[in-house]
Design a binder for these strands. Structure first.
Length: 212
DNA sequence: ACCCAGGGTCATA
DNA sequence: TATGACCATGGG
């Protein structure tokens, strides 16, 4: 089976198993972007606590984050871990976002220019950029995260040494460039990853009986 | 008392 | 370019 066929089949199986996800846990595009930074190498449950702190302080908006000192911002996002680093990153990002004319200005950019702009912000790497592109700006880029790598490895579709960029190309070149499809596919991978069969994350049933 | 989680940067070889 | 140290919390 070609990897193209395998990727398409995988999507159908996941969709059949879990249905539409209509997903990113946030109420606004700005919240998506903040969450994307806060979830770097961090469990989402911790990100939720940080987001709630920001909401309760009425600080989940560009103006507040720009106005807060790094120290105060770090205090609010403490539960998400790496709070000093992430406070800097959030401020780097919001500064850039405002300088570029917010959504009004950034929406004019091509997918590639917007992506390169995001990657130019210190603290925004490829996955964070692609989360923001796909779920906040609704641009057709495929997000590669740890779940995606692990799943493809278990399915023997990759050997694990591939670069982020090559894996992104693997998906993007074998699927329709459809925003909704990319959103659903990534969401389904995350959903599937959170299933814990037999009390373990690495489920033998998924590996052997139904290898997804 | 460990181990890990939806990364990214920086210094070093 | 590739590997390692570093950043830090909360849940299992």
């Amino acid at each position: 089976m070609t990897s193209r066929a395998a990727l398409q089949k995988l999507y159908r199986r996941l969709y059949k198993a879990y249905g539409p996800q209509d997903w990113w846990p946030a109420e606004t595009p700005f919240e998506v972007m903040v969450g994307a930074v806060l979830t770097q190498n961090t469990a989402w449950t911790n990100v939720e606590k940080a987001i709630n702190n920001l909401k309760q302080a009425d600080a989940l908006n560009i103006h507040s984050i720009s106005g807060l000192s790094e120290l105060k911002l770090a205090g609010l996002i403490k539960p998400s871990g790496y709070f000093n680093v992430k406070a800097k990153r959030l401020k780097n990002f919001t500064n850039w976002f405002v300088q570029q004319g917010r959504f009004k200005g950034l929406n004019k950019l091509t997918d590639l220019d917007l992506r390169n702009g995001l990657l130019g912000v210190n603290g925004i790497g490829p996955e964070t950029a692609d989360d923001i592109l796909l779920y906040a700006f609704e641009r057709p880029v495929f997000v590669i995260d740890a779940y995606t790598r692990r799943l493809l490895e278990r399915m023997k579709l990759i050997d694990g040494k591939e670069s982020y960029e090559s894996l992104r190309q693997l998906f993007e070149s074998n699927l329709q460039a459809d925003i909704k499809l990319f959103q659903e596919y990534h969401a389904l991978i995350v959903r599937h990853a959170k299933i814990k069969c037999s009390g373990v994350n690495d489920c033998k049933h998924c590996l052997v009986e139904a290898p997804i």
